[in-house]
Design a protein around this nucleic acid. Structure first.
Lengths: 104, 104
DNA sequence: ACGTCTGATAACAAAAATGTTATCATTGAT
DNA sequence: ATCAATGATAACATTTTTGTTATCAGACGT
């Protein structure tokens, strides 16, 4: 039998410690969740990317890049985008898990 | 009497709506508070910038730049720095004001 | 006096985000 | 069929962050 790991899907790759470290995986999952909430908040407000761009001062292509995760925002950019959506960022202790449900 | 505003101190400048918009002021205050918590957390752990650099993978000059607010971190950098300190970032509704006290 | 550790910073390269302008395909409404 | 609005993206300039390497002055202990 071969000792090679089966790497066929992205999930296989992503969960292979030899390729993506646990720390990286955790950070990437964090970013996915963060951006997901950002998108959810915008759509819940019924805002288009262009409208949010107008309100936040962040240009529409930049917002599109963030939402499609082609860029990692700086905290000031994230703040500008979240604010018109009624959200902000906070530092919280790890494992506190006070997940914010946007569908209140 | 003159209608000119007195602008003598930085505080005067910072609170002059004609120079710093309320939105900018709010974002800047947010960043100051954020960085303050980051510094507080590091010092509470008794870590030097070099030790934190080692643990987080963010270089010491970069950490120094963040702490002295000569740079605005990207969220992945902030995440990397906060994680060894036992903190993470979360999106929370505005005016929720669940301030995290680091002196538990 | 000496050595060590600290945070700050200089100088430059490298990488990345954001702005700018424009366009595209798709969807939905009329 | 046409039109308007949407999100995505292309291409490039600009700005900024981060890395890299090295050094500095100050604090502190021995």
């Amino acid at each position: 039998m071969s000792s090679k790991k089966e790497i066929n899907t992205f999930s296989d790759y992503f969960n292979d410690e030899a390729r993506v470290s646990p720390a990286d995986r955790e950070r990437i999952n964090f970013e996915i969740a963060l951006i997901g909430k950002m998108i959810e908040a915008r759509e819940q407000k019924g805002l288009s990317q262009r409208e949010l761009a107008e309100m936040s001062g962040v240009k529409q292509p930049a917002i599109a890049r963030l939402e499609s995760m082609r860029a990692t925002p700086q905290i000031d950019t994230l703040f500008k985008v979240l604010h018109p959506l009624g959200y902000t960022i906070e530092i919280v202790p790890l494992a506190h898990d006070n997940t914010v449900s946007l569908t209140r």
